[in-house]
Design a protein around this nucleic acid. Structure first.
Length: 644
RNA sequence: GCCGACGUAGCUCAGUUGGUCAGAGCAGCUGAUUUGUAAUCAGCAGGUCGUGGGUUCGACUCCCUCCAUCGGCUCCA
């Protein structure tokens, strides 16, 4: 007998070799129907795989991420089976579950697959799903695995097998399709009731563009048809929140082919919004002891040779700008740090001067490949809310904590409740690709981990994701379609101080090397505005929105009064506008509602004689009438509440 | 850059198997109307149907090139 411990702490005894599914059956037939996957001793485990020792057991139903992963992983095998049935000559790459669904990379041997072909694959998948094919696990030796797959001509699989440890290799078979796979999988295919293949894309084998490009098919499946319908509905809804659409509707920003791709044009309302965000951050930064600087948009090539960026990124950047003077070359600045380093170098610095916090809303230019550009989230010209903190080694953690405070204050004010903080550390197996001493790296990494822990951030640690010059902490937020975007970033840098030979005089009267911290709480103004628009679906908070209220005169007779109201409100620094078009009041209300204007002020005879405005809140709620002064006080209160 | 999708007025979209198919709504302009909380009425104007080739008696419709946009991949200081 073996002891099985359940998540609630209960312990039950079972026959050795019992499966998770049998245990579920013993608990309740209903549970056995719903359970899709299990974790044994914290590792995801096939429901039918025998359990041979005392273990902890967790049964996963659809709502658990583990269940979805198993479900979608099995679905990718089901898709592979269908594709193999329809196109027998294909070769397979990898086919994992992803956050929303799954994909499989396939070498179609020259055959072109277009979206119209997907329907046939979907139908085949459903056919196999209905025939309730078991997922059968088989442990194999490395030699055996290689033999099986090389016989089939599955060169990609053989490459994978070669990298695996003998004794850890397993196959899974569903129907006539056998795949190299660690598992786990569903018991059989019958749980997959709804299938949708979403798109075809090219993807390079092992993510390397020097390798062969395979065809990647993305899909998603559900245990119920209604869930698929809901999901597709959700995708439609998300499209409505696309910042590119909202930005166009609200006239915030635009692109022009003639100006150039990826070069955003900020329109008057967008500029207004952006400046308000910048001022908001300027105020916060001032409280935290930052000083503002302004540096040029170009710099001599030598500046970037010194910083090391020319060697590392020069080939993939905008080409140098040459001048009438022979041999003179300038680069569009791809970052602000080298300029700031030069400011640091202007005079001898004392340990008493540190930390020196230089901030700049610095516009930078980076050459992104054309296919990479995406609205405001990925552009070729953008403005970082940049700052560089020059500090002593022993100040790193405190400075880090303060930056985290700023980021959290911004997130709180703008109601970004869902974010993760990604700590990117060195790849411990490949330390050579990083600049800086082992000792310094270790110290910096420890400081970041401690600071994140102290601030209670929801963190994930990614090994090997660090920049070449230092570890970093990134704040990731999701857009309308669930894609993750990096916003705020904090990075330690031991490299630039070295390269620019930065120093300070310590209390010991000796020269020391300062540490540099790069940080940008918004990330970039462009990306931040994009994510903010998707997050709020264009319903920006009152303190930020370009048009806080709109004044509607009932008829032409009251245009003068409406103008007066508007001017008065503007004097109170309230962003009020007037809509005196020759349209019915009903139409003007409708259109301003559709624009999500927070307050609509209607003025007619009653209001003019009382010196008041009649207030309609966005959505239709009436707030009665107030004098112009009362209303301006009211708006100020509301704004104050938002910024608390 | 690569794989796939798409490209008709400023915007959102119709346009059946190639033959009055160049259309609608909104926006714009002109006029009427002077409005009390989600669409007043009438008229006018707007497009070499992304570009350049080709097939055809005839192409928005079929084929090819290129360009742009969109979904991915690679990359992201």
């Amino acid at each position: 007998m073996i002891k099985i411990t359940f998540p609630d702490g209960a312990v039950k005894e079972y026959q050795e070799g019992i499966s998770a599914y049998q245990i579920a059956e013993s608990l309740s037939p209903r549970l056995a129907d719903d359970v899709l996957s299990s974790s044994v001793n914290g590792k995801i485990y096939d429901l039918d795989r025998p359990i041979n020792a005392d273990s902890t057991l967790k049964l996963h139903k659809w709502d658990d991420p583990e269940a979805k992963e198993t479900f979608w992983h099995s679905s990718s095998h089901l898709m592979a089976e269908a594709i193999k049935a329809l196109y027998p000559n294909v070769k397979f790459g990898i086919g994992p579950a992803i956050e929303n669904g799954f994909y499989y990379d396939i070498d179609l041997e020259g055959k072109q697959l277009v979206e119209a072909d997907l329907k046939a694959i979907e139908d085949k998948m459903l056919e196999f799903a209905r025939s309730k094919e078991k997922f059968v696990r088989q442990d194999v030796s490395k030699a055996e695995a290689l033999e099986v797959f090389s016989e089939k001509g599955e060169t990609f699989k053989c490459e994978l097998i070669n990298d695996l440890q003998d004794g850890t290799i397993s196959f899974y078979t569903n129907g006539s399709f056998t795949d190299l796979c660690r598992g786990p999988h569903l018991r059989d295919t019958s749980a997959i009731k709804a299938v949708k293949l979403l798109s075809i894309a090219g993807a390079y084998w092992r993510g390397d563009e020097h390798n062969k490009q395979l065809t990647r098919i993305y899909g998603i499946t559900f245990p119920k048809k209604s869930m698929l319908d809901e999901y597709l509905q959700m995708l439609e809804e998300a499209k409505k929140r696309d910042h590119r659409k909202i930005g166009k509707e609200m006239e915030l920003f635009a692109f022009s082919q003639r100006v150039g791709m990826g070069l955003p044009l900020w329109l008057p309302k967008g500029t207004d919004l952006r400046m308000r965000l910048e001022n908001f951050l300027r105020k916060v930064q001032k409280r935290y002891g930052y000083v503002q600087v302004i540096t040029p948009h170009i710099g001599q090539k030598d500046l970037y040779v010194t910083s090391g960026h020319w060697a590392k990124y020069g080939a993939d950047s905008f080409r140098p700008i040459s001048t009438p003077q022979e041999g003179e070359e300038y680069l569009l600045k791809p970052m602000n740090c080298p300029h700031h380093c030069e400011i640091y170098r202007l005079k001898p610095r004392s340990y008493r001067d540190l930390p020196l916090r230089l901030a700049e809303f610095g516009t930078v230019y980076r050459y992104e490949q054309s296919g990479e550009l995406h609205g405001l989230t990925r552009v070729r010209s953008f403005t970082q809310d940049d700052a560089h903190l020059f500090c002593r080694q022993d100040q790193i953690k405190e400075e880090f904590c303060k930056v985290i405070d700023i980021v959290l204050y911004i997130f709180k004010t703008l109601k970004f409740e869902e974010y993760t903080a990604q700590i990117s550390l060195r790849d411990p197996d490949n330390k050579t690709k990083y600049i800086g001493s082992d000792e310094n790296w270790a110290k910096a990494e420890a400081a970041i981990v401690e600071a994140a822990k102290e601030k209670g951030l929801p963190t994930v640690v990614e090994l090997g994701e660090a920049a070449f010059y230092g570890p970093k902490l990134d704040f990731m937020v999701k857009d309308a379609l669930g894609r993750s975007w990096q916003l705020g970033t904090i990075q330690v840098d031991y490299n630039l101080p070295e390269r620019f030979d930065l120093e300070y005089i310590g209390s010991d009267d000796k020269k020391h090397r300062p540490v540099m911290i790069h940080r940008a709480p918004f990330g970039s103004m462009e990306r931040f505005v994009a994510v903010l628009l998707e997050h709020t679906a264009g319903r920006l908070p009152l303190w930020l929105i370009p048009e806080q209220c709109i004044v509607l005169p009932i008829s032409e007779k009251f245009n003068d009064y409406a103008k007066k109201v508007c001017e008065l409100l503007n004097n109170y620094e309230i962003r009020a506008f007037i809509d005196d078009r020759n349209e019915t009041i009903g139409k003007r209300i409708r259109e301003n509602e559709l624009k999500h204007t927070p307050y609509i002020l209607v003025v007619g005879e009653k209001e003019e004689s009382a010196g008041s405005v009649s207030i309609r809140k966005q959505g239709g709620e009436s707030l009665g009438s107030m004098t112009v002064e009362e209303f301006s006080q009211f708006i100020k209160q509301e704004v104050k509440k938002e910024l608390e």
